[in-house]
Structure formats: C-alpha cells, structure tokens
C-alpha cells in the first residue's frame, strides 16, 4: 500500500514537471510568434528619440498615435481598404456563388469544358499578368480609382470551386421539391442554396476580405494618391517618404492598421478552420 502510494506520488510529481515544461515551451513559442508584434506595439508607445537611441525604455505615451492620425492619412488608408475590401468581398461571394450554382444545378452544353477552363485559371499567377492588366485598366481610365482595385477581383476560380463543393452537398431532393413547387432558379438559388451553404459563404467572405486587405502589388501599381491608396500601398508610401526615420509614428500606424484584420481573424477563425480543413483533410 505504501509502495503504491509513493509511486503514485512520484507519478503526480513527474506529471507536474512535464506540465511545467510544456507550458514553458508553449510560452517560448508564443513569444517567438508574437514577439515582432509585441515589440512593435511597445515601441509605438515610446518617443522616437529613445527608439533611435536603441533604448526600449522610456516614458510611455500616446503621442505617436496622435501624430500618426493628425499628420498622416493613415485613417484615410484604412477607410479606403475597408471600402475596397467590403465591395470585393460582397461581389466575390455573389458572383462565385452564381457561377457555382450554374456548375451544379444548371444543365447546358459545354458545362464541363467551362468548368475545366475555370480550373485552368488557378494555374495562372496574377503576378505574371500585371503588364497587360495594367494596360487594360489604363485604357479603361480606371487608374487611381476604387474600381481598379475592385473590378478585376469580383470573381475567382478558387471561390467558385469552394462553393461548388458546398453546393454539391445539397440533397437533390430539395431541388426536385422546389421544381415541383415551381420555384425558379433564382428563387431556389436565393432562398434555398445560399442559406443552406451559409458557413461556406462566410468562410469565403472572410478569406476574400483578408486577401483583398493584404493585396499589395496591384494597389501599389494602380493608385497614385492618398485619396485611393489602401493601407498596403499607403504604409509603403509612408515608409518611403521622410517619415521613415520616425519609427514611433510608423509603428503606431502599423498597429492601427493591423488591429482590424486581427479582429476579423479571431472572429472568423471558427469559419476558417472548418473551411480550410474541408479542403485539405479528408
């Protein structure tokens, strides 16, 4: 009995040590992951004078934020990013879901051919197509507008596939029933298909929003004024101008910019997880 007891105690003790080590490791990993962010957050509250001296100590202040908001268009950049990303997200979800509907519920000649055509576009990197695309939007007089950052991205093969997979899971009975009840394709699409695939639609929306927000090359090429610059192109602009050495203010702007996407990520994480794993794990 004594032996049993003591061995149990040793077991418990051991468990605590391994638990402690596990937490230690997790904390180290967590610090590596958010280290750069924490450093940025911390310096955003320091006066630039102490940052440039290489000191991470100093009296904490909101000055950098005040300067960033008052002397730079960072809030305008944010507004622009929101406008572009929201319209793009709505558009992509709408157009992709319509295309996906056609691939699942409509019968027409050449459906498979067009489907493979969509499939093929996923092999073509946008980065390799910027030259003609730039010329196209230039000839359409779209340079330096919101439209230039919205129109080319209102649909995507990726989104169409993702929704097609989801629509395929809708029971065929539902379609048959709706045919019997005389629902048109538009009614079936709007009142049955979309509500049925809500989760996938939200996943696509979150994904679409984040990728639009993170778009860098295209907004940088196609916008020249702060009136339309998104945060990515805007922060580049701020970096390249004289504010470059004002580390405190640059950090404050970076923090202002990162907060909305972090919130969206944490709120949308649930959807992301289920959506991502639909694709990769089976």
């Amino acid at each position: 009995m004594d032996i049993a007891n003591s061995s149990q105690r040793i077991g418990k003790h051991k468990f605590k040590i391994s638990n402690f080590l596990q937490y230690l490791l997790l904390i180290i990993l967590a610090l590596i992951v958010i280290g750069p962010f924490l450093l940025g957050l911390w310096t955003s509250f320091l006066p630039t004078s102490s940052i440039t001296k290489g000191s991470l100590a100093g009296s904490l202040t909101f000055d950098n934020y005040v300067t960033a908001v008052q002397t730079t268009p960072v809030l305008r950049y944010l507004l622009n990013s929101f406008i572009v990303s929201i319209i793009r997200t709505v558009g992509e979800v709408l157009l992709c879901s319509m295309a996906a509907y056609a691939f699942v519920f409509l019968k027409f000649k050449g459906r498979n051919f067009i489907f493979y055509l969509f499939l093929a576009t996923m092999m073509l990197p946008f980065e390799a197509e910027v030259i003609p695309n730039f010329m196209t939007v230039k000839s359409m007089n779209l340079l330096n507008t919101y439209s230039v950052m919205i129109i080319p991205f209102l649909t995507s093969a990726f989104g169409t596939f993702m929704l097609r997979q989801s629509f395929l899971q809708i029971p065929t009975d539902l379609k048959e029933e709706s045919d019997v009840e005389g629902l048109s394709h538009f009614q079936f699409y709007w009142h049955v298909v979309l509500p049925y695939s809500k989760i996938t639609l939200l996943t696509l929306a979150a994904y679409s929003f984040l990728s639009s927000w993170n778009e860098y090359l295209w907004p940088m090429l196609t916008t020249f004024s702060d009136q339309y610059r998104t945060v990515q192109a805007g922060l580049r602009q701020m970096q390249s101008t004289e504010t470059f050495n004002n580390w405190g203010m640059i950090m404050a702007s970076a923090v202002i910019v990162v907060i909305p996407t972090l919130i969206i990520l944490f709120v949308g994480q649930h959807f992301f997880k289920s959506g991502l794993n639909d694709g990769s794990v089976k």
């Binding site: 967590a30 958010i34 750069p36 962010f37 450093l39 310096t43 990515q232 922060l235 970076a254 990162v258």
Partner: peptide, 25 residues
C-alpha cells in the same frame, strides 16, 4: 496566438521586421 500572424498584412510585417533587423536600433 499561433494563428495570429495570418491577420498581419505584408506592409505591417515588413515594418515590424525592419525594426527587428535594423542594424543600429
């Protein structure tokens, strides 16, 4: 925390790392 870098866009990450790797500060 581990998933959080997904919410950090490229320009923000660049600013953070330019500071981490800055030769003097």
């Amino acid at each position: 925390i581990f998933s959080s870098t997904m919410g950090v866009s490229v320009s923000v990450a660049a600013i953070f790392f330019l500071f981490v790797f800055n030769p003097t500060t």
